[in-house]
Design a protein around this nucleic acid. Structure first.
Length: 507
RNA sequence: GGUCCGUUCGUCUAACGGUUAGGACGCAAGAUUUUCAUUCUUGUAAUAGGGGUUCGAUUCCCCUACGGACUACCA
C-alpha cells in the first residue's frame, strides 16, 4: 500500500470554462504527482449530456498548458488506460451497476423524474424533507418492492429505469481524509443515489468516478471540499465493489471564496467581481465572454504562485516560488482547512514581482501585440529597452502601454496640472538652452547629456526640480516616468528636438 | 430544515500546550529621488463568545454564535 505508485487525476466536467478554484485543484494534484515521481492524469467527466458545453474541454487543456501544468496521461495525450473521456467509456459502467444489483448493494428504480418531483413537493408542503432512502425504497416502484417477473418486464419495456445504491441503515461509516482527519457519518442520514441511468446509458458521477479511479489505479484523490458529503457513498461503493484494499487516499481541499465573503467562487461569477475568475479569455457557445488572467496581463508563473498559496503555504515566510520550488515544498498535510478568500490586490503584487524579475526581451514579446493593437509597430529590441526602463512601475503586462506609449508617439496634449506647476518663470527659457545642448550633441548619450544639462542648471542657479520637470513635460506630456536622459537617448536627437520645439511653440 | 466541514490582523497565513502571537498584501508615515514608481525603514491591525482539562491554552474537549459545502436521473 505504501509502495503504491502515486497516480492522481484532475477530473473536470466540460460544462464551461475552468475557474481558478479548479486550476488550484489541478495544480495541487500536479505538484503532488511531481513530488512523488508519480503521474498526473487528465480525465474528462462528461457523463451529463445535458450540461455539456462545446469548447470547454479544449479550454481546460489550454489553460493547464498556459499554467505550465503538464499532463502525463489522459485526454489530449493518451495513455495505457485510454479512453480518458467518460462518454467514450460508457460500455464499461453498466456491468458494475449490474454487479452491485446482483450482490444486493443496489436495485432498479422505475419512478419518473416527474413522479419524484411530485413526491418532493408533497413532502415540502408538509414541511418534511424527502429522501430516497431505506424508509421509502420499498414503497416506491423498485426491484425491491415489485415481484421479479414485473421487474423483468419493466426493464424491457421502460426506458427510464435507474440503478440506485442501497445505502444500508444505521451503519457507521468511518472515513479518513488527509486534510480533515477522521470523519464519521451514520448511513441512515444518507440517501440512495442514482448510479446509472437507462435513459442515456450513462453512469452518474459517483459510479463513473469510483470505477475509473479503480481502473486507472488512482492512488490519491485530491479534490474540492464540495465532494466531502459524498465521500461516505464513495467509501461504501469501494466496499460494495470489493475494492476497499486498493481504495485511494482522499484529500478534500477547502474552497476558494468570493472576495466579498459570500459563498464559494463559481463559474457564473464570470468577471462580475471586478477581476477574472478564469485563467484564459473564454467565449461561451452562446457568445458570452469572460476575462482571463492571461489577457489581463498576468504572467503564468505569477498566477500559479499566487494560487498555490491560497490554502497552502510551505511553513516558512517564502512567498515567491517557482513551480519547481513549490513541487519540492508542497505537502497536503500543510494545506489549511478553512476556505480562502481570493484577494485581487495580492494577485497584482505577485505579478509585479514577477515582471520585475522577468527578462526584458521576454516581456517585450508579450508587449509587441499590444503595441500593434495600438497602431504602432515596434522592434523587439526597442520594446525590450523601453520595458527595461518602465517595468518597475508595472503590475500587469497591460500596464506597459500606458507607461511607455510616449516612447513611440509624441504627446498630443500636456497635463494641465504639471503645466501650471512647472512651465513658468525661467523654466521655458531653460528649455531653450537644453534644446541647444541637445542640438550640439551628435548623438544623445544619456550620461554625457546629463552632465551637460545638470552642469547648466547648477551654473544658472535655477531649481533642478522646475527645469527637469519642464523638460519632462515637453518630452513626455506629463510628470511621470524614468530618467529623462534615458528617455531621450532612446528617442534620439531628432525626435527630442522636435518635441522640444513643439512644447516651446504650444505652451 | 437535515447532514457534514470550518473559525488567528480587513485579506492570505505562521506559531512541539510555555513567543512581546511572526510574515506577506493593503493602508499610513518617513527616507531616497528631477517626476511617477521602485527600493528601504517604521507604524497599523487578530486568536468569535462562554465553559472546562491543565501549573499554563491560539493549540485539547464541550456548548453557543457565525461562516461554508452538500441535500438532482449535475458534476
Amino acid at each position: 500500500m505504501l509502495e503504491r505508485k502515486v497516480r492522481v487525476r484532475f477530473a473536470p466536467s466540460p460544462t464551461g470554462a475552468l475557474h481558478i478554484g479548479g486550476v488550484r485543484t489541478a495544480l495541487y494534484n500536479y505538484l503532488f504527482a511531481r513530488q512523488h515521481g508519480g503521474d498526473f492524469i487528465l480525465r474528462i467527466e462528461d457523463t451529463d449530456s445535458q450540461r455539456f458545453v462545446a469548447g470547454a474541454e479544449d479550454y481546460i487543456i489550454n489553460s493547464l498548458k498556459w499554467c505550465g501544468i503538464n499532463i502525463d496521461e489522459g485526454v489530449s495525450v493518451g495513455g495505457p488506460h485510454a479512453p480518458y473521456r467518460q462518454s467514450e467509456r460508457k460500455e464499461i459502467y453498466l456491468k458494475y451497476a449490474q454487479e452491485l444489483v446482483a450482490k444486493g448493494w443496489a436495485y432498479y428504480a422505475f419512478d419518473t423524474s416527474e413522479e419524484l418531483t411530485a413526491i418532493r413537493s408533497e413532502y415540502e408542503a408538509e414541511g418534511k424533507t424527502f429522501a430516497y432512502n431505506y424508509e421509502i425504497r420499498t414503497k416506491l416502484k423498485t426491484s425491491l418492492s415489485l415481484p421479479a417477473n414485473e421487474v423483468e418486464e419493466l426493464l424491457k419495456s421502460c426506458n427510464h429505469w435507474v440503478v440506485r445504491f442501497k445505502m444500508p441503515e444505521n451503519h457507521e461509516i468511518k472515513m479518513n481524509d488527509i486534510v480533515r482527519g477522521n470523519v464519521v457519518v451514520n448511513s441512515s442520514t444518507l440517501d440512495d443515489k442514482v448510479l446509472y441511468k437507462a435513459a442515456d446509458l450513462l453512469p452518474t458521477y459517483h459510479l463513473a468516478n469510483i470505477v475509473d479511479d479503480h481502473l486507472m489505479e488512482i492512488s490519491h484523490v485530491i479534490r474540492g471540499e464540495e465532494w466531502l458529503p459524498s465521500l461516505p457513498l464513495h467509501y461504501m461503493l469501494y466496499e460494495a465493489l470489493g475494492w476497499s484494499d486498493s481504495q485511494p487516499i482522499f484529500a478534500h481541499l477547502p474552497l476558494l471564496l468570493k472576495p466579498d465573503g459570500k459563498g464559494k467562487l463559481s463559474k457564473r461569477d464570470g468577471d462580475k467581481l471586478g477581476f477574472p475568475v478564469f485563467p484564459l479569455f473564454w467565449t461561451a457557445p452562446d457568445g458570452e465572454t469572460a476575462r482571463g488572467y492571461k489577457e489581463d496581463g498576468y504572467l503564468p508563473e505569477a498566477f500559479i504562485n499566487m494560487l498555490s498559496l491560497l490554502g497552502w503555504n510551505p511553513g516558512n515566510d517564502q512567498e515567491i516560488m517557482t513551480i519547481e520550488q513549490m513541487t519540492e515544498l508542497f505537502s497536503i498535510e500543510k494545506c489549511g482547512k478553512s476556505g480562502s478568500r481570493f484577494d485581487p490586490e495580492k494577485a497584482k503584487w505577485f505579478n509585479a514581482q514577477y515582471i520585475k524579475a522577468a527578462d526584458n526581451t521576454q516581456l517585450a514579446e508579450l508587449f509587441l501585440p499590444i503595441c500593434s493593437a495600438n497602431g504602432v509597430e515596434v522592434s523587439l529590441d526597442l520594446a525590450a529597452k523601453v520595458i527595461g526602463l518602465v517595468k518597475d512601475r508595472a503590475s500587469l503586462i497591460t500596464d506597459f502601454w500606458g507607461l511607455a506609449s510616449y516612447f513611440f508617439t509624441a504627446p498630443t496634449s500636456y497635463d494641465d496640472k504639471a503645466v501650471a506647476k512647472f512651465w513658468k518663470n525661467d523654466n521655458p527659457n531653460a528649455i531653450k538652452v537644453i534644446r541647444d545642448i541637445v542640438n550640439n550633441c551628435d548623438t544623445i548619450v544619456a550620461a554625457d547629456c546629463e552632465a551637460l544639462v545638470h552642469g547648466y542648471i547648477k551654473e544658472s542657479g535655477l531649481g533642478m526640480g522646475g527645469v527637469m520637470n519642464s523638460f519632462r513635460l515637453a518630452i513626455v506630456g506629463e510628470s511621470k516616468g524614468p530618467s529623462m536622459f534615458d528617455i531621450i537617448e532612446i528617442l534620439g536627437k531628432k525626435e527630442t528636438l522636435s518635441r522640444l520645439d513643439m512644447a516651446l511653440k504650444t505652451l
